[in-house]
Design a protein around this nucleic acid. Structure first.
Lengths: 100, 100
DNA sequence: GGAATACTGAAGTAACCGCTTAAGGATTAA
DNA sequence: TTAATCCTTAAGCGGTTACTTCAGTATTCC
């Protein structure tokens, strides 16, 4: 697998913010509407929505609006990519160590 | 294992920058002095040093100065933490899916 | 000693980020 | 049909970031 730097940029940037990561973590336990997510957080509903939009733009979350409710759910591909990247770095390191 | 949000903040922020990530990736293949790293990169030596300092401050890299050469090497703990976090999210997600 | 090499720090700057407030649109409930 | 609920957008603001240039220090080589 070959991952584009821009893809990793998107994933790491999306998860680098504590609140955004908290939203993502919450959604890993199951889908939730925006307001419900916001209740757990120390920021405005507006800020939460902005975070959700960022997460969605970078492909970590998908959301669907039914009536006045927008339900957000996690997209798992990003986690797979991230894990793959980490494991590749660990492999590189171990290989370099053996060569030493 | 329980990871502090500030630890994850540090790791994700450190790796969210493309150039900084490139430095980290390069160092996973083995230690290198600052100038050698800089040769592979589209930015100034000064900028590279600043990135190295960030990586070091956040615990992803350690460096040692001998004479006029500062040799940088990867600290692998961050990768372990990152991998653990990803796997925990994947577990959360699968558990939530089963419950569905 | 003098020149080249390798790093270091400071200052400045342009761009980006996360957040709030405020105002509004759409949907549902009474 | 009115009120409550849920989301959405825009504007603005303060803080942070990545970068450059420039000027410097320490070390090694000749």
């Amino acid at each position: 697998m070959l991952i584009k730097p821009s893809t990793l940029d998107a994933i790491f940037k999306a998860l680098a913010d504590r609140n955004r990561r908290a939203i993502f973590e919450a959604l890993c336990h199951g889908p939730a509407p925006v307001t419900e997510i916001a209740e757990l957080m120390p920021i405005t509903l507006s800020a939460v929505l902005q975070h959700v939009q960022v997460l969605e733009a970078k492909g970590l979350v998908h959301s669907d609006k039914v009536g006045r409710l927008r339900t957000c759910r996690v997209e798992t591909e990003a986690l797979g990519i991230l894990r793959y990247w980490v494991e590749a770095r660990q492999r590189d390191f171990r290989r370099a160590e053996r060569r030493r």
